[in-house]
Simulated scan of single mutants.
Amino acid sequence: MAIIVNKEEKRSNIACSCKEILLEHGIKNLTISQIAKTAGVGKGTIYEYFKNKEDIVFEIITMFISEHEKKLFEITDQNISTKDKLFHFFYMIHEDENSNKQLNIYREFLAISMTNGTQEMVDFNIKCRGKFTDILGQIVKEGITKGEIHTEAQDMVSALLTFKLGLVVETHTAALDPKDEITRFLDALFKLIEIKEEK
């Protein structure tokens, strides 16, 4: 009797087993041979489940994003202020060693995308941006509903995400302290969007 293999599950298992070597070697230095060895399969098997190395990298980055999303949803469910939720949204990727390793992979992905990226990379980036826009939009919408911030803040969701992505680059290239930058940004922003109690 033939063994039925769940292709999506096998694909996910291969990518999952390679998360650490991606963090260790980076995108450019990662090879199909390393991936196959780490996953405990032959190189030919890798190509049964992935088109190329980039496809595996996309799958692993998607796993990192899913982990990040889960943490963000935990924050959005907390009973804290909108300003605090936004702080966590911006800072979470900088807060510990594992997050910093993932951040370095994302920086490398951005660098490759900007210098010799493919349409596939652009499409992947748009998909990722959509996920974070949704979470950020949810935080802002809830802040409006709770009467903490003005309705017009909804129009700033895309710009807020652009700040987060710019911070990913600037904290690396200009050696900025993410916590200080986020705090200054949110203090200035909330002077504009926060609903002040009337005295």
Rank of each mutant, 00 (worst) to 15 (best):
H172W: 06
K127F: 06
L72T: 03
A39G: 12
I139H: 08
A111Q: 05
F124L: 04
N125C: 03
F190T: 08
Y47K: 10
D155W: 12
V157D: 08
V57C: 09
Q119P: 04
E20M: 01
F109T: 02
F89C: 08
L165A: 13
Y106H: 06
I93G: 05
S17T: 02
I135M: 05
N52H: 12
T38V: 03
E97R: 12
F73H: 15
K146L: 15
D180N: 15
Q102Y: 05
G137C: 08
L167Q: 06
N125K: 13
T76Y: 11
V169L: 14
Y49K: 00
Q138L: 13
K28Y: 12
L189E: 02
L167S: 02
E198R: 03
E67R: 13
I112C: 01
I135F: 04
I46P: 11
T145H: 10
Q78M: 14
N79K: 15
N13Y: 12
K83L: 07
S33T: 10
I105D: 00
G26D: 03
D77V: 03
K7R: 14
N125H: 09
K83H: 05
N79P: 09
K101L: 11
L110A: 06
E8V: 04
K19D: 03
L136Y: 01
L86C: 10
K19S: 11
I93T: 14
A111I: 07
L176C: 10
M121S: 03
L30E: 09
I60Q: 03
T118L: 00
H88M: 09
I193G: 02
T31M: 07
N104T: 06
V168R: 08
V140T: 09
I135E: 07
R107M: 00
I32V: 14
F89G: 14
D123A: 01
L189W: 05
K131F: 00
K141W: 09
E9F: 02
G117Q: 04
E69F: 07
G40I: 01
Q119T: 07
K37F: 09
I75F: 01
E148Y: 12
M121D: 00
E170Y: 11
V168H: 09
K70G: 02
A36I: 00
R107K: 13
A159Q: 14
M1I: 14
A159Y: 04
F190V: 04
T31W: 08
F90A: 00
L189D: 00
C18M: 00
H150A: 14
I4F: 13
K146G: 04
E95P: 08
I27K: 02
L86G: 06
D134V: 07
C16G: 14
Y47A: 13
Q119R: 14
H172P: 00
I21A: 07
E48A: 10
S66P: 03
I14P: 09
